[in-house]
């Protein structure tokens, strides 16, 4: 089955390097127009997935569709419609940043010179410096300018903000939002949760080569627990035994607990019967979502 609107559609992808299964049955769907966060710690398989999508690696089994085509067989033609920013950008030591931006842009099929000038200005990049003399952050900017200056349907960004200062991260955020407004699709791999939380409407969490959670941020929050902190007149004693309630701590009148999203109504009802003085309920942050998946595995 092939989704017509899916820009990226991966099913059961397996990639083995020697004795390690870098990808172990990965499923991932990115619909057109999504800014899709691809979350996972180092070594979980994010870059491997992107390299399969770029046709650099040949999957051992499974299926991957990119922009309606085969990322391996049709690599060169598909790449006219996408731009890629690697996490660790290596530049040619003797070429200037400006030359590299032009080379990459033209080799992709052309770049918008007005947008190029604007991006260089906004990212505060000196395009006359040689590749060898850029710092890590500036190398990253060269790749970002080259990617964002092209008019493409899909941006594949592999930890694109590593090395950028907070000011430049903001510029980056702005451009990704602008791309979404123009109807572009973005796959943003990252381990910086705040970045994903501000930018992405969809999130997939990858662990050990498998996507363990995927959906809108809203959906994901529903799947997990809300933290409730309250002060009660008479704290109940049997709360910890209730289904859907976890990590109960009682400190005098103060009670802290985690409630499953489905049980919130019932739990609050029970608390009410003990006389609520104050109550705060905090939905899980992405960080907690993320840690829940990773801590749970250990």
């Amino acid at each position: 089955m092939r989704y017509v609107s899916a820009v990226i559609d991966i099913a059961g992808l397996v990639k083995i390097f020697g004795s390690t299964r870098a990808l172990d049955g990965l499923d991932l769907t990115v619909e057109a127009g999504q800014v899709h966060g691809f979350l996972g710690p180092n070594g979980s398989g994010k870059s491997t997935t992107i390299r399969v999508l770029l046709g650099l690696l040949r999957p051992d089994s499974g299926r991957a569709t990119l922009l309606g085509g085969d990322p391996w067989a049709e690599a060169a033609t598909l790449h006219r419609r996408l731009a890629y920013v690697p996490g660790d950008v290596a530049l040619w030591p003797n070429l200037t940043g400006g030359e590299i931006i032009d080379l990459i842009g033209r080799a992709r099929g052309g770049l918008d010179t007005a947008r190029r000038a604007e991006l260089i200005e906004r990212f505060d990049l000196d395009p006359t410096k040689k590749g060898r003399s850029y710092s890590k952050g500036n190398r990253q900017k060269v790749a970002l300018v080259a990617a964002l200056a092209s008019d493409v349907d899909l941006l594949l960004l592999d930890e694109p903000t590593s090395g950028l200062d907070p000011l430049m991260e903001r510029v980056f955020t702005e451009y990704v939002r602008a791309a979404r407004e123009r109807g572009k699709t973005v796959l943003l791999s990252s381990h910086i949760l705040s970045e994903v939380e501000t930018l992405c409407d969809h999130v997939s969490i990858i662990r050990a080569g498998k996507v363990v959670e995927s959906g809108t941020l809203q959906d994901l929050r529903h799947l997990s627990r809300t933290q409730i902190v309250c002060e009660l007149d008479s704290p109940p004693t049997a709360l910890a035994q209730r289904a859907g309630v976890h990590d109960v701590t009682v400190d005098g009148h103060r009670v802290t607990l985690l409630a499953d999203q489905t049980q919130i109504g019932a739990v609050v009802g029970e608390l009410a019967s003990h006389g609520i003085r104050t109550l705060t309920a905090t939905p899980p942050t992405l960080e907690e979502l993320f840690l829940q998946h990773y801590d749970g595995a250990r």
Binding site: R51, H79, Y84, L156
Partner: peptide, 10 residues
Amino acid sequence: GRAELVLSTA
């Protein structure tokens, strides 16, 4: 890794 950058183009 520079070849990767070139191969990510057309």
